[in-house]
Write a protein that binds this DNA or RNA. Structure first.
Lengths: 251, 251
DNA sequence: TACCGCTTGTGAACGCATGCACAAAGTCGG
DNA sequence: CCGACTTTGTGCATGCGTTCACAAGCGGTA
């Protein structure tokens, strides 16, 4: 993942790692949860809550309290023992760590059903992610505004992305076009890609890709449906169901 | 571990107890990857490829070859040493394990931009997931067909879900409605939920929830953008308390 | 000030997942 | 039929992430 150079500066151990030094050490899984905490905290702030304990917050976020505290400890010690966390303080620190203090310009490629939906989200949930460019191959769509942004032709992708300083590219095209679109985004300098197309994208090491795959999600659920059905059918018989011919089943 | 028994069995094999025993032991992460392998394999099958090695398949799927073999080993030993895997055989076995041999009726709740997009996918990517019900609170939408399915009112959710044997519920509503919708789905007997609303759903233990959270995905990418920017800038950006972003370079 | 109860922050153990490396098992050419 | 080559399947070590448990630290109280 990414180009891992000598991760540290030799053996010089800094006494007090700066915030950003820390950022490098935050596990990916923790980052995802921090985003969830942030949303929950924002909701609390809107409701006038200004202090929260790890227990309360963890329940609202659907995680273990210890895990929450460890996650928060990755970004620093901003709680007060015996009391809890100040909501505002936590919000601002998480925002800082997640890089939400500045805006990230987003481009959506592929203005089909999904692209339409994404464009119309308008600034994306949570704000801070203004959609500044839309692209499609269909010439009939070019120029038509969707969600307030006029669609550009995909051939202009490089120029437009550079001009509007797009930092995140969203691919919502049909599968066959995805890799090609991805390549163009990369050559336009986009280093982060959110891919909705059911395709495994090949990218350079310095580009970060996250994928949202509907089919995979459905199939994972399908797996659990099947597993449940089997358990329901099998458990009722108990573990004596198999050993007809004396087969011994492990513990 | 139970050794292999059936050596002559091919596809269209009915589920057997031992296989199902296995299913329970497959790690969640592996299940997600199996779905990806399945897609890649299906593509290969369509192109007339009928044999593949773990090396080829792993590259196409973007994973380590050893990991791929281990993943496949969870579902059984269906490869031929010195040769590789038969594409058709692998496809059918993965489909069986993922429970794709039967259809899973899907209901989409919330026919806004996203719901529209989902409904129009028509049977969902990968097939096997027919959308059989759509719901919305808006009375004006009720009865209007979207993607060939007429929208039902959300108050009828229980009756309709039971009648159409919905096994997977997709929540595409605004955040405030999500929990309520979820509760109704659960009370209608739906045990698997795919949640697009940026909300942490509270469900009974016997219900499986997977969430697709746009905001979280964007924020994870944002984190990486920020991390990159910091690394590129050299060292670190200090930020204490209330200072917005004073650029302080520390040795 | 000294004590008490509460909550954070974290060291350490545990468990799961990843990657390596190799024996087992098959094919192919002679 | 045999030996060389190829590729699977997996035991094992490593690393990451989760969970536990508790000392440290803070506010409140007498």
């Amino acid at each position: 993942m990414a180009s891992q150079r000598g991760e540290g500066e030799m053996n010089t151990t800094p006494a007090e790692p700066a915030d950003r030094e820390r950022a490098r050490a935050i596990p990916e899984a923790a980052v995802a949860r921090l985003a969830v905490y942030l949303r929950v905290l924002s909701g609390m702030a809107d409701q006038g809550v200004n202090a929260v304990s790890s227990e309360e917050l963890s329940q609202a976020a659907g995680v273990n309290a210890a895990k929450l505290r460890k996650d928060l400890s990755y970004i620093g010690s901003y709680g007060t023992r015996g009391v809890g966390y100040d909501v505002e303080v936590l919000v601002s620190h998480i925002e800082r760590i997640l890089g939400l203090t500045r805006n990230h310009s987003v481009a959506v490629v592929g203005i089909g059903n999904l692209g339409h939906a994404l464009a119309n989200y308008g600034g994306f949930p949570g704000r801070g992610f203004p959609v500044t460019a839309l692209f499609d191959v269909d010439a009939d769509l070019v120029g038509i505004p969707v969600g307030g942004i006029p669609v550009s032709h995909i051939d202009d992708i490089t120029a437009v992305c550079v001009e509007r300083e797009v930092s995140i590219g969203v691919i919502a095209t049909p599968p066959p076009a995805a890799q090609s679109v991805c390549d163009r985004l990369v050559s336009a300098g986009v280093q982060c890609i959110l891919n909705f197309a059911p395709v495994v994208l090949q990218v350079p090491d310095n580009v970060e890709v996250r994928k949202v795959d509907l089919a995979v999600e459905m199939q994972i659920l399908s797996f659990h449906v099947a597993r449940r059905a089997d358990e329901a059918a099998g458990v009722s018989v108990g573990n004596n169901g198999l050993g007809v011919d004396g087969m011994v089943i492990r513990p």
